[in-house]
Simulated assay, not measured.
Amino acid sequence: MARLMVLGLLKLKPMSGYEIQQILLKSHSDEWAGILPGSIYHALKKMEKEKLVEIDSIEQTGNRSKAIYKITEQGEVAFHDLLIESFQVSSVHLPSNLYTGLSFIEHLEKEQIVHSLKIQLVLLEQQLHQQKLGIKEKRKYMPLDPVTEMLFENVFQQYELQLQLIKNLIAHYEGL
């Protein structure tokens, strides 16, 4: 996923690794895309060796210098292939940790279950809030096309669906 994201962003314009990292962090794309911010530099170096990206320029700021990368023709081909591939793999990822835990929930006391589910509820609410801040941040930098708007709406709905399950589980176990 990091390769597709980096190549896609470099198709927009040449950028430094730091700039790519900041775009992902500010828009919270790093969360839904499953990309660790630190992996950007590793991905860039690896793709540079594979000739998918190359250094466009070196910018000097005081004693520091930063490489500005651009996508190559080979990178364009790789981007296209990765993009096609992204539509051909399952897009549903079930919350396997939660589902596995629920399979053995009878081994916990009711209070432990409710407490743990409330922690999950707070975590999901915080993540949803961050995602909503992310779309606001992204709108500051660029107008969002209808597909991106749909993508964010789907992310919000996924969180809402999961939140409802957790709330129902809490109500169920508090009612026992």
Rank of each mutant, 00 (worst) to 15 (best):
G175D: 06
I58Q: 09
I105P: 12
L124I: 05
V122L: 10
G17N: 09
Y41R: 12
V89C: 06
P37A: 01
K11L: 15
Q74R: 15
S90K: 14
M15C: 00
T148W: 01
V6P: 00
A2V: 13
V77E: 07
H129D: 11
K66W: 01
I135A: 00
L102W: 06
V155Y: 10
E48R: 12
K13Q: 11
S86D: 06
S29Q: 00
D81K: 07
S91G: 13
Q162R: 09
I119Y: 00
H28A: 01
N97F: 10
Y99K: 12
K13G: 07
L123P: 00
N97P: 01
L102A: 08
L123E: 10
Y99A: 02
A33K: 09
L128Q: 05
F152C: 00
L12M: 15
M15D: 05
T100E: 12
F79I: 01
I84C: 08
L165K: 14
Q22D: 07
I105R: 15
P146R: 11
A2F: 04
L83D: 08
M1Y: 13
K132S: 05
I166M: 08
L133S: 06
E111R: 07
S65F: 11
I84V: 14
K136I: 12
T72F: 05
G34P: 05
Q21F: 05
K26C: 00
L12Y: 02
T148D: 02
E106D: 06
F156V: 04
S16K: 02
M5T: 13
K45M: 10
K11N: 15
D30N: 15
G175A: 14
L176M: 14
Y69N: 06
T148P: 01
S90M: 07
V6L: 00
R3N: 13
G175R: 09
V77T: 12
E31G: 04
H107E: 15
L10S: 09
L36R: 08
L108A: 13
I55H: 08
V6I: 09
S91D: 10
F156L: 02
T72S: 11
I40H: 04
E54Q: 15
R3T: 14
H172E: 08
D81W: 00
Q131R: 08
S103I: 01
S91F: 15
E59F: 04
S29R: 00
I40L: 04
A171L: 11
H107V: 03
E59H: 01
S16W: 06
I113P: 13
H107T: 14
L163P: 05
E31A: 06
I58T: 04
E174N: 14
K118L: 04
K46Y: 05
E48K: 14
E111I: 13
K138G: 02
D81V: 15
M15T: 01
L94A: 05
G62Q: 11
G34A: 09
K132M: 04
K45E: 08
L108N: 09
A78C: 14
G75D: 14
V77Y: 03
L124E: 11
Y159E: 09
T100W: 12
V114P: 09
L128R: 02
A171R: 15
A43M: 07
L144Q: 10
Y18R: 12
D145K: 03
I105N: 04
L7K: 03
S91N: 13
Q74H: 15
Q157R: 14
V6G: 01
F156N: 07
K167Y: 03
L144N: 07
